[in-house]
Amino acid sequence: MAMEPKSSSRDATVVLDGFSYLECPRWRDGRLWVSDFYTHQVVATDARGGTEVVAEVPGQPAGLGFLPDGRALIASMRDHRILVRDGSGRLGVHADLSGAASGMLNDMVVDHRGRAYVGNFGFDLMGGAPLRYTTLARVDADGTVTTVAEDLGFPNGMVILPDGVLVVAETFAGRLTAFDIDEDGGLGNRRVWAQFCPTPRTDDVGRAVEELDVAPDGLCADAAGALWVADALHGRVLRVREGGEILEEIATGTGVFACMLGGDDGRTLFLCTAPSFAEHERRAAREAELRAVRVDVAHDGLP
């Protein structure tokens, strides 16, 4: 189980504001790419005020990643597709996950070979359906879709560590789960990387929320082998060591749902914040912010 967190006095600054609900930030070639769910836009920023809408995704954008040739992959949540954006900004369909995902597509990580690991909700969270565990899919560079893991409690943020280990946040299980990535892209040696609290044994989402001491959402890795983890229910990001020790806590004073290390030296931690995650509260509001805080250890791994 997780140890008591060590509180931090680091100050975050607002980089951008006026968005609906930001998720899945990715640092790439001097800019941060981020999905804004309910404006259906993917936005890139230089973190100094410059912004560009790099994609319009009617099906609602989520997970982001990049193929080895630099083209961007974008998870289109509601139509279960992975889109590919070419150098001119045109979007095409890279893969259709309709037969592999039981809920809206969620976060995604892309490896150095162009293989994308994609999670999904597993149930209608925003519609009030009972909690259901679900699968993780792999999309190969040619668009082939394969189910590579099952029985995951809302697979969310993912990282690939330099040693080839995939770590997946299971939000409703209160844990981070690790897999070894095989040469062919399969996943093996499943184990718990960090267990923050007992896993709720209920299909009632409200009850599960009450039982979760940490609800891990977006993730990123640093060069010391630790992970920064957005805690979707408690307004904080946690720096966590394998085994569950919490090395540092940064409170945000509002909800925080994803994080990414970037900047010129890899030591700027970008935070996607909003007052809540509920769609009916976020869709018409423009209260989401991208914030940034300086940390001590630089980025490593993927994304």
Results as ranks from 00 to 15, higher is better:
A194P: 11
A224Y: 05
V209N: 09
A230Q: 00
L227K: 08
G206V: 06
G186Q: 02
A224Q: 06
V214K: 02
W193L: 06
A194Y: 14
V192T: 15
V229H: 02
A230H: 00
P216G: 04
V192P: 07
C197L: 07
D222Q: 00
A232Y: 13
P216W: 04
V205T: 14
G225Y: 04
V214G: 00
A215G: 15
C197D: 15
F196M: 03
E211I: 00
G206R: 13
E211R: 06
W193N: 06
A215V: 12
R201Y: 08
A230S: 01
A215S: 12
T202V: 10
G225M: 01
A215T: 10
R191W: 13
P216H: 07
T202S: 15
R190Q: 10
A194C: 08
G186E: 01
Q195S: 12
A224C: 01
V229Q: 02
W228A: 04
D217E: 00
G188E: 03
R190F: 07
G186A: 07
F196G: 03
A230E: 00
R201Q: 15
C220A: 03
N189R: 15
L233F: 15
G206S: 13
T199Q: 12
C197E: 13
D203H: 14
Q195H: 13
G218F: 00
R207F: 11
W193Y: 12
E211N: 04
V214C: 01
F196I: 05
A230G: 00
C220N: 06
A226L: 04
V192I: 15
T199I: 08
A221V: 02
V209C: 07
N189W: 10
W228S: 03
Q195K: 12
A221I: 01
G188F: 03
D217R: 10
P200K: 09
P200W: 13
G188M: 02
A221Q: 07
A232N: 15
A194G: 09
D213Y: 09
G206D: 11
A224S: 09
P200A: 11
L212P: 08
P200H: 14
R191M: 02
G206C: 10
G186N: 05
G185Y: 00
A194L: 05
L219G: 01
L187N: 03
T202F: 14
D222G: 00
L233G: 14
N189D: 05
